[in-house]
């Protein structure tokens, strides 16, 4: 079929699967950064300090409206200009983590805003501390409506990891490019990369929906 070579396919498959591990690690690490940093960005917009709210809001808008690939270049190359050398992995994780933190902060913000005002008032009437109010009352309720968005961006970050290849992170795309330039065959490596992405992202998306329903049940909210 269209000059598809199965022997070559099986020759490069182990290499691509090994690179898939790197891709998954990059996605996982980037997501971990984004989940935590996103919460910081969301909560920073809820303090009484107007200037802080405004500054964080603009930062989030800026990150969301500029290309990730450009941000990856920026983080990777600007450091050395000022004497800070970042390894490709470090720069990549900073860029992708920050990018998705901006998106997740919007998800969290929506989730927090979806909690009725009465819940804050009841917490105050019971004299709960602000920390207790956030962690025991508000965040558990903000979580279920945030899960769909959080899941989408987990799959999203996974699909954006190929951009890390531009600064030499040895993930799937980088490996496929390397195979292509060694063998002058692009059909198999690029197609396999697509298949691997599909094979991971489609079941993950389905699993996330199951997980979302499970969390709702655990919290007694369905």
């Amino acid at each position: 079929m269209f000059d598809w070579r199965w022997d070559f396919t099986f020759e490069i498959l182990p290499r691509l699967l090994l690179a898939t591990v790197n891709t998954l690690m990059a996605a996982g690490a980037g997501y971990a950064i984004a989940v935590v940093l996103g919460l910081v960005l969301a909560l920073a917009q809820r303090t009484p300090y107007r200037a802080l709210t405004y500054a964080v809001r603009e930062l989030v808008e800026f990150i969301r409206s500029t290309p990730l690939v450009l941000q990856i270049f920026f983080v990777f190359y600007v450091g050395p200009q000022f004497g800070i050398r970042l390894a490709p992995w470090t720069a990549g994780m900073i860029a992708i983590g920050l990018h998705y933190a901006a998106y997740l902060s919007e998800v969290y913000r929506g989730g927090l805003e979806s909690v009725p005002k009465g819940q804050w008032e009841a917490s105050l009437a019971l004299n709960l501390s602000p920390a207790r109010t956030y962690f025991r009352i508000i965040i558990p309720q903000a979580l279920p409506p945030s899960l769909a968005g959080m899941g989408n961006y987990l799959v999203g970050i996974f699909k954006d990891t190929p951009m890390l290849s531009v600064i030499g992170v040895a993930e799937l795309m980088h490996t496929a490019n390397a195979i292509g330039s060694e063998s002058y065959r692009f059909l198999e490596p690029y197609t396999l990369v697509g298949v691997i992405f599909l094979a991971i992202s489609l079941p993950t998306a389905a699993l996330i929906r199951v997980f979302e329903a499970w969390v709702r049940r655990q919290l007694g909210m369905s």
């Binding site: 009725p116 819940q119 009841a122 009437a125 019971l126 709960l128 025991r136 558990p140 919290l219 909210m221």
Partner: peptide, 28 residues
């Protein structure tokens, strides 16, 4: 010194009836 009941109850939906009642006594 003050307790309040609201028009829309404002019970915590992710806690059972007794957990709602125990939340303040235990944690405050």
């Amino acid at each position: 010194n003050i307790g309040m009941c609201f028009q829309h109850f404002n019970l915590f939906p992710h806690m059972t009836a007794i957990e709602n009642c125990m939340e303040g006594p235990v944690h405050v």
